[in-house]
Simulated scan of single mutants.
Amino acid sequence: MIVIDYQNRKPIYEQIVERFQTLIITGAIEPDSQMPSVRSLAVDLSINPNTIQKAYSVLEQEGYIYPVKGRGNFVSGNSELKVKKQEAFFVSLEGLVKKGKELDVKREIFLQKAEEYFKEGSYDRN
């Protein structure tokens, strides 16, 4: 479910946050289902429980999960999360397009590459 890339410069808790965000947004983890406990996930990943707790705190602040006292953390059913994530993607895409223009990347080449990359993945989910 979660794989840590120790060669990645991104902090471990951010990697965990991003992976869970993707799993929640794509529906791989259903709304109102229980998240793994901090302790069990820490053992599975062989990392400090404080790192998991920090990731869960970020996920809670962003609305991906909610805590239930004495029972653990559960996945939020917030449908706006996907929209927010897509908006952030388009902001990033805008930056890439601007950078491409600065580098004199032609529109046709940009669109061709975008189509190639889109076909490479399994992005046929709407």
Rank of each mutant, 00 (worst) to 15 (best):
I2K: 00
V3C: 00
D5C: 06
D5N: 13
Q7K: 15
Q7A: 14
N8F: 09
N8Q: 13
R9L: 15
R9T: 15
K10D: 12
P11A: 01
I12S: 06
I12K: 04
I12G: 03
I12R: 05
Y13S: 14
Y13G: 09
Y13I: 10
E14S: 11
E14Y: 10
E14Q: 14
Q15M: 05
Q15S: 09
V17I: 12
V17Y: 02
E18P: 01
R19Y: 04
Q21F: 03
T22M: 06
I24A: 08
I24D: 04
I24K: 02
I25F: 00
T26Y: 10
T26E: 14
T26G: 05
T26W: 05
T26V: 12
T26Q: 12
G27A: 06
A28C: 09
I29K: 13
E30M: 11
D32W: 06
S33P: 00
S33W: 05
M35H: 01
P36G: 01
S37T: 15
V38S: 08
V38C: 05
R39P: 00
S40K: 02
S40L: 03
L41N: 01
L41T: 02
L41E: 01
A42S: 07
A42H: 02
A42K: 02
I47V: 15
I47D: 08
I47Q: 03
N48C: 08
N48E: 13
P49Y: 12
N50P: 04
T51P: 02
I52Q: 01
Q53F: 07
A55T: 11
Y56K: 06
Y56Q: 09
S57A: 15
V58T: 11
L59I: 08
L59N: 02
L59D: 01
E60Q: 12
G63A: 03
G63Q: 08
G63D: 02
Y64P: 12
Y64D: 05
I65C: 02
I65W: 03
Y66H: 04
P67Q: 07
K69T: 14
G70Q: 09
F74I: 01
V75I: 11
G77M: 11
G77N: 05
N78L: 10
N78R: 14
N78T: 12
S79W: 00
E80R: 10
E80V: 07
L81S: 01
L81A: 04
K82A: 15
V83E: 04
K84I: 07
F89L: 14
S92H: 08
S92L: 13
S92F: 07
L93V: 05
E94H: 13
E94K: 15
E94V: 12
G95V: 11
L96D: 08
V97R: 02
V97H: 01
K99D: 13
K99I: 14
G100R: 09
K101H: 10
K101R: 14
E102Y: 04
L103N: 13
L103S: 10
D104V: 10
V105E: 02
V105S: 01
R107L: 09
E108D: 14
I109F: 04
F110T: 08
F110E: 03
F110Q: 05
L111P: 00
Q112D: 13
Q112V: 03
Q112I: 05
K113Y: 07
K113R: 09
A114K: 00
E115K: 12
E116V: 11
E120D: 11
E120F: 13
E120Q: 14
Y123S: 08
D124L: 10
N126G: 03
N126F: 07
